[in-house]
Amino acid sequence: MNAFRLAGDMTHLLSIILLLLKIRATKSCAGISLKTQELYVIVFMSRYLDLFRTYYSLYNSLMKIIFLGTSMCIVWYMRSHKVVRQTYNNDEDTFRHFFLVLPCFVLALLVHRNFTFIEILWTFSLYLESVAILPQLVLLQKSSNIDNLTGTYVFLLGAYRGLYLFNWVYRFFTENHRVRWIPWLSGLIQTAIYTDFFYYYIRSWKNREKLKLPA
């Protein structure tokens, strides 16, 4: 495993830890999109189906279990925890899952490498992950008060796939793999969606201002 990949995974892990920390410490999920979190549960469930079928490494299996467990834990907090759920921005988190899940599933049925159950779900998970942040970004645009933890959470979540792009470039030149259009393009689109957010996040950090996204 190269440094980009490890940095990407650690960034991803850190973003989740930060979100759980925010929820547990402040007993609030204000500014967090339940839609995005639920999409992540779908992403992880469809991608990590191979968890009990193919063994890669202890690291790989552990990380998959952590991502599955924490994503479900976050959704549980937002939906069922009696204090946390009252802080959820129900009225502003209006993006519909359906409009992302259905097109991604149809696309996975049309564009994939092999027509097998596992492969279609794996492809679907990559397509869905690339757009899963959209409800969160829409919610942030509507929020006038984005707290630091939420801003940094989204930043780390975006940076993770960006680091994977470097990892893919590195692997392409150092390993004997073929061109992998599906993860590469999905990852590129995923990172591109964050571009605007990155710009405003870094600007607010440099100027020591509160983060605010233009509507």
Binding site: R5, D9, H12, D50, T54, Y56, S57, N60, M63, K64, F67, R113, W122, Y164, N167, E175, N176, H177, R178, R180, P183
Partner: peptide
Amino acid sequence: EVLHEPKDEL
């Protein structure tokens, strides 16, 4: 040549 895509990533 590797026949299948490596799915060793997360």
